[in-house]
Amino acid sequence: MADEVPRSWRDPDLLIKALPTVLLQTTCFLAPLVMTFLLTFQRSRNFQLQWSWDLWTWTDVFSKPHYWTILGHTIFMAAATVAICLIIAFPIAYGLATRFKAWENEIKVLITFAFITDATLKIYGWALFLDKNGMANYALSSIGLPPEMVAFLYTDWATLLGMVYSLSAFAIFTLYLSISNIDRSLILAAYDAGAGKFRAHWEVTLPLCKPGIWAGSVLIFLLSVGAFLEPKVLGGGKSPMSAELIRQTFETRVNWPLGAALTLVLMVVSVFIVLLFSRLIGLKRAGLAA
């Protein structure tokens, strides 16, 4: 399958294939990240960037609890999103891997389409649905229920709903992959050992799809700390999350160094949390490998 002997970087075959990616991701991903880091040592005066090379911005970041409250809120929402996504994804992924065989492709098409459709549209659709004069309330009151029962638009609950909506497909796909890789005979062996169906899955399926659970959790967590549309459109911007704070810092306050610092803080804290958990769970690189 793979090479038996490592190739030299002078091999033209390797160069043609790997170099474009290396160039693209170093110049348009790594270099911007490094520059973002360097920007945090500058200052912003009168909406202009000044190359001052000091720790002024970092002092600001660490002295204002406001930023950290928002960060804490963001992490909390992200963690909640991960938990809910996993819970709702498990039965779907399990069904896809085992019971829905006849409809497997149709179901995958439906899920993929919903997943790949642009987030702006879907969030906008939710806003129209949940609005106090929206679909949900209209439907409920037309069957005789009191008006405006659905009233959680512009709360954290709506934000959470949007985030789960946008990201749960990741959990479905990663769990589906790892469940379909489980050897069926292991579960049969568990039945044979006298376990009931629930017990068998609890003891066999769940532990074996740990890598899938982990990969899905990491992806969802990292992507949801950057959520922006959901808190803005569905949460009504009332309890801002980090992404919104960062965007405002750039756009409204035009403070690039501060925005850069807040971006880095968000990334570093998220990655740190992921690493901490992977150490706790004892799955070092399963997430990346999957």
Partner: peptide, 25 residues
């Protein structure tokens, strides 16, 4: 190489957008 080629997948898009905006600016 695999890490470099795959890591933007797990990077929040808004932040990627901002980092690139800074870079291009």
């Amino acid at each position: 190489f695999r890490l470099l080629a795959g890591v933007p997948l797990a990077f929040p898009q808004l932040l990627l957008g901002i980092v690139l905006l800074l870079w291009f600016s």
